[in-house]
Structure formats: structure tokens, C-alpha cells
Design a protein around this nucleic acid. Structure first.
Lengths: 201, 201
DNA sequence: GTCTATAGAGGGATAGAC
DNA sequence: GTCTATCCCTCTATAGAC
């Protein structure tokens, strides 16, 4: 079914996946045409179906990797019983901002697709075990008695993710240059942990 | 859902616009079919083109009203020179959460469409005059010398908007019931202003 | 494995009767 | 103003040559 080539990253299959990442992320599933993807990959349209059978299948593969990027590496941090709450906040902030800086369009793309087609994700996302009942959440509950830990979680995630979501607005309105935005993001590595600790005190 | 008097709200044109709001918001521009909209409106497909000439035109009308809802009522609050910074924070929080509760899918829909087609919005959004240089931003700059007011603005907006954006994730993952989410949102009317004032101290 | 050509369905838009 | 029928282009997917 699949021929193993010398260089994985330049294989036909990988070219399609990379092109699909770009086109899907830019336009969304419905507006992305298989022709766009083939052109972006510099390859023939028929080959796309030869390798992936359908647009839908290719999308599922790309999206699975995106979800992996967004959620997977959080689990071990959230459930590390050897770190304090403050250390977790520092750690997550640093790692998440770096990851999002490398993939700035990921959050809005993933969230858009979940919104327009929730059924597709119903089985994929398992917040309950890894996040909602994590050591991290228990630490929050222990630290600040009156507070609902979910409130803190949503606020913290929002502090990290929202700037990337709102970026297109600043960009198209001309209110912000690319470099100014990058600097603003970088500054948040210090600001966000500081603020979140204020909230927890 | 909308049960107002005869004339305007039950006119054919208004039925299409209401149906378009629903279908566009649910599926996004590209995935929404004009046939879906006509069916949702309980009207004939040909009539859609008779009234709006094209799918694109109908979308522009609906989106203009959405942008109005999202941004317009902020301007007078942000530029009210008779209120303190704290009052503005309270005021915006209350009004914005109410508006978003009534239109929970609005933010993600609008942001998705801006992302997939930024050109369409380049002229529409004028952050500069009404927001970036507002009395609100000047008050922040005056209150907390070292801080970039934009950092505060993004964080504040994120605190208000992000829960609505992330909701589909909690919903599809089954981690949250509808009522639990509504309560969580309601609680934020108190929490968010409290937190934002901590950050400003 | 890679190509050209095309089948076949979907969907935006219009003609024309009433 | 509202309908039915239909045009016609676009897009996914496949057949079949090489």
C-alpha cells in the first residue's frame, strides 16, 4: 500500500500532507479545493486520490496531527505530581506560546472546524481524563478554595490562545505590524504567569 | 425563535436574512448552501436571488450586522470621558457577556470568516480610531505606567470572548452540560472585573 | 506511480410561467 | 412576488494509458 522512500519529507505523500496543511488551514475544509492542494504540492490531482482515497480522508489525517500538537503535550505537564502549581503555570505558558508561535493559525483553524462539524470530533477529544481531572486541576482547587478550577483553566488558556485568535483582526485592520505582534506575544511569557498568580493568591 | 409583529420581521426579505444568519453561522460561508438557506426560511430558492442577487451579497448583509453587534456598542463606552477605568471595565463586562450569551456563536463565526477571507474585512474594521486611541486605552496607560495597554485590551477581550470560542470543545467532549456552561458564564460577570482590577493595581 | 481525460454530482444562478 | 424547471460551471473522484 505504501512505498517507503529514501527521504520521508520529500515523498509524494508528505508533499500532499504539507500542502493540505497549508491550504486547509488557510481556507477551511469546505473552501479548500483538492485542486488547490495538488497545485500547492506541485503534483497531479489524480495522485491525491491515489494516496488518500478522498479529500475527507486527507483532512482527517492532517487534523489528527493538529489535535495532537494542540493537546497531547499538555497531558504530561498537567499530571506531573512532582511540580508545584506555579511551576506548571510557568512551564505551560512557555511551551504553549512557543508552540503557537510556530503554528499561529492552528487554534482558529481547529476551533472553526470543530464548530462547523462537531460530530467529527466527538470521539477524538477526551478532555475529561487528562485535563478536567488532572493533578493541575486538583492543585488549583486546593490553592483557592472558593474558585471553580474550570474558571481558572479557561482564563489561563484564553490568555495564551486568544491573542493568536484575534490576530487576523489586528492584522487586517492595519493596527499592528507583524513584528510588533511577535514582540507582544513574547512579552506575554512573563506577563501571563504573573497575572495568573495574582488571580490565585 | 423570533416572534415579533407582522410587517418587517415576517417579510420575505427578513425571513431570508434570519435563515441566512442561522445557516451561515452554523456552517460557515463556504459550506452553507443557498438551498439550505431557502429551506430554513421555508421559501423558494429562486426568491433568494430575486431579493439579494447572490449568496455573496446576502452574506455581506448578514456579516455587516454581525460586526455591528460585536463592535459598534463598544465605541461609546470606550470613549466616555465621564466614567472611571473601573466603571468602564464593569460596564463592558456586563454588556458584552449579555450580548455574547444572546449570540454565543457570533465570535467564532466572525473570526473564522475573517481568517479565511481577510480581504473582505480590510475596509470594514476600523480599530484604530475607536479602540486603539480611545479614552479607555489612555486611562490604562495612565494607571499602570509600565504596561502596554494593548496587552490589557487583548487579555480583557480574551477573558470575555474566549469561553464562547472554546465552548464547542467542552460541548463535544461531553465535559460540560449546557446549563453548567451558562452558569459559568454568568459567574464571570463578577470574576472578570475582579481579576482585571488585580492586574491593573 | 504518474499522467490525461472525463464521468458524475452538487450548487449558484436564471428563464419564464403564473 | 413567487414558483418550477433547468442551465452550466465547479469540484471530487475515477478510468485507463503509459
Amino acid at each position: 500500500m505504501k512505498e517507503v522512500k529514501a527521504d520521508i519529507n520529500s515523498s509524494t505523500e508528505e508533499k500532499f500532507k504539507e500542502a493540505a496543511r497549508i491550504v486547509f488551514t488557510k481556507k477551511g475544509y469546505a473552501a479548500a479545493k483538492t485542486r488547490d492542494i495538488a497545485e500547492e504540492a506541485g503534483l497531479n490531482l489524480a495522485l491525491l486520490n491515489y494516496y488518500f482515497r478522498s479529500k475527507e480522508k486527507l483532512f482527517e489525517i492532517v487534523m489528527a496531527e493538529n489535535l495532537q500538537k494542540l493537546f497531547a503535550f499538555l497531558a504530561p505537564i498537567l499530571n506531573d505530581t512532582s511540580t508545584t502549581l506555579d511551576q506548571k503555570v510557568d512551564n505551560i505558558t512557555e511551551k504553549y506560546i512557543d508552540m503557537l508561535s510556530a503554528n499561529p493559525n492552528l487554534p482558529l483553524f481547529v476551533l472553526s472546524e470543530i464548530r462547523t462539524n462537531p460530530e467529527r470530533f466527538a470521539k477524538t477529544i477526551q478532555l475529561d481524563s487528562y485535563v478536567m481531572k488532572s493533578h493541575f486541576m486538583q492543585q488549583i482547587a486546593g490553592k483557592k478554595k472558593g474558585m471553580n478550577p474550570v474558571q481558572f483553566l479557561i482564563s489561563f488558556m484564553g490568555m495564551l490562545i486568544f491573542p493568536f485568535i484575534i490576530r487576523p483582526v489586528f492584522q487586517t485592520s492595519g493596527a499592528f505590524k507583524e513584528e510588533a505582534f511577535a514582540q507582544l506575544i513574547e512579552d506575554r511569557k512573563k506577563l501571563v504567569p504573573h497575572w495568573m498568580k495574582l488571580i490565585l493568591e
